[in-house]
Amino acid sequence: MSPSGFRLAGGVLAAGTVAGAALATYAACEARAYTVRRVTVPVLPPDHAPLRVLHVSDMHLTPGQTRKRDFVRSLAALDPDLVINTGDNLSHMRAVPFALDAFAPLMERPGVFVLGSNDYFDPGMRNPLKYLLPDDGVRHIDRAQLPWGELVEGFTDAGWLDLSNRGGRLRVNGEEIAFAGLDDPHITRDELDSVGAAPLDADLRLGVVHAPYLRALDRFADQGYDAIIAGHTHGGQVCLPWHGALTTNCDLEPARAKGLHRHPADSLPGDPGSSWLHVSAGLGTNPYVRFRVACRPETTLLTLVAR
């Protein structure tokens, strides 16, 4: 190669290195740009007052993540009437007391929760690009178990309802809310038969699950639940501007990787066997690769209003 060719190749390599470093810096900053989304859901009976529901998901906390912990503590200032936690709170063997500290102000409010796979098992180092490939069905349940029982005990001692393959009821601001929940479908802990028909005597019926696999969403919708609350997807985590998510890490299509949608996707409000679906993009990442692209970490304040 001629000297000019070497100089050109060197320039391209240098430019690529700078661009790669810039992208990595941006992605690391994006993963720490915690955001509150606000969404209105027309799901209450006519003439009922609005209800403020805080949806928190996928914190993936480690002991050293003080900024994330402070952000979660600050969410109590939003004055929610109800907190729904859709799991993956942990990412470290010693994270439970830090997670409970983060949620302490919110645990003064009525709340419900389910767990995700990363509450049960240590996440470990993974190839982040694998999430962009088709699901091979491999689940890392051979990893060390996290002390998830301590997390459940902390939540339930504060009065939050554990909805792992079970239902429950709460009266919140005069609204009778019936819940049905599933344990994490991502690691096949879901027991679909535990979700029975939505009670007709409740003002609002909510399904709660960590990973929005279609079998779980179908069950809630078929059984008459007004809305389904889920997490897990990280909103795609690495998204393309003006395109959105490339993957959901489950069988939900990328177009519904985050935000408010209908389920089934082509249904309309009032259609039998259909529900609203809210999927949170979550607050965290794998602790070893804290990158997000065009997909800020989030929690959502859902304002439920009359249909």
Rank of each mutant, 00 (worst) to 15 (best):
V72K: 00
G174E: 04
A77T: 12
D101F: 14
I177C: 08
S2A: 12
S74Q: 08
D47H: 13
Q145V: 14
A180Y: 11
D81K: 05
H234T: 11
L170C: 04
S267T: 04
N249D: 13
C239T: 03
R143N: 12
D122R: 09
A198S: 07
D70P: 00
R94H: 14
T285I: 02
T188K: 15
G124K: 06
A265G: 14
R169A: 12
I141P: 02
A180C: 08
G167N: 02
D203T: 06
L82N: 09
S91W: 06
E108W: 03
A15P: 02
D203L: 06
L206E: 01
A24D: 02
V12N: 00
T40V: 14
A22S: 10
H261A: 08
N249M: 12
R262T: 05
I228F: 11
L78W: 00
L260I: 09
T156K: 09
V83K: 06
V305Y: 07
G284S: 08
L100Y: 13
S274A: 14
D251V: 08
I229A: 08
A99L: 14
Y131S: 15
T285A: 04
H48R: 15
N249Y: 00
Y288T: 10
A76N: 07
L129E: 02
L252N: 01
N127G: 01
A198H: 01
G154R: 03
G174F: 07
L132H: 05
T25G: 00
A294G: 06
G236L: 00
H261M: 07
G224W: 11
H263W: 15
V112N: 07
Q223M: 12
R215A: 12
R307D: 14
D222A: 14
T62H: 01
C29L: 14
D79N: 11
C29G: 13
H60V: 12
H48S: 13
A230L: 07
A257T: 02
Y34Q: 05
G5M: 10
L44I: 09
F291W: 12
G196M: 07
L44R: 08
R67L: 14
E253A: 13
L192Y: 02
D201F: 10
V293R: 07
G235I: 04
G231K: 01
L51Q: 06
D193H: 08
H48Q: 14
Y34K: 04
L100Q: 08
A76C: 06
L268G: 04
G231N: 07
L8K: 06
V152A: 12
A99M: 15
L78H: 04
A158L: 00
S280Y: 02
V152W: 03
G174W: 11
R52A: 13
F98H: 15
V152D: 05
V56F: 00
S194M: 02
S267Q: 09
R52W: 00
